[in-house]
Design a binder for these strands. Structure first.
Lengths: 87, 87
DNA sequence: CTATATTTGTGCGTATGTATG
DNA sequence: ACATACATACGCACAAATATA
């Protein structure tokens, strides 16, 4: 069976669960500053959600200053000392 | 302080208050025929309501024939002589 | 410059679940 | 039960930005 990284029936909504998974990967150093996150399309496939849901997850990370998005390119891991979330 | 255009505690429900505001803007000529209304997203931000509520307001105008909606594009001000609201 | 593919941005249609009066 | 409202989610379509051939 496929390992479902998220549980749609959990009290925590899928977009927050996805945000938590990605946040963990960033803080673990699995995704380094300057490196791109998976595209929205890849996130929808990996987590089995709609694009809107993947985008909501990315929006959470963006608000925390963990990542930044470049239109037409992708979303990238921010420097640990970036302004918004930063320190 | 921010001017709250609508009052959630008024007897008139928010979606009708929003409909009234938009109707006034159309009849005042603030929004001309053929021109797009604010998107649902913009309405949610402007009036501080959920998307469903903004949509309910637009539905009111649509029933009155004041506006028409094109899926994926937006909602537009109808011609003054349109059928539904007519004459 | 043109064409194409990829990715993000925007916008509407719809459905479900929850909460309140 | 019903109307209203919010939060979340899935789907679809097209536009804009970017990169590459």
């Amino acid at each position: 069976m496929a390992a479902s990284e998220i549980d749609p029936r959990a009290p925590e909504p899928p977009y927050r669960q996805i945000a938590a998974v990605l946040t963990a990967e960033i803080e673990r150093g699995d995704l380094l500053p300057g490196r791109p996150l998976p595209s929205e399309k890849e996130l929808t496939e990996r987590f089995g959600v709609a694009r809107n849901t993947a985008r909501s997850a990315l929006a959470v990370l963006r608000e925390r200053g963990l990542v930044f998005t470049v239109s037409g390119r992708g979303t990238y891991v921010a420097e640990p000392s970036e302004p918004a979330g930063g320190q």
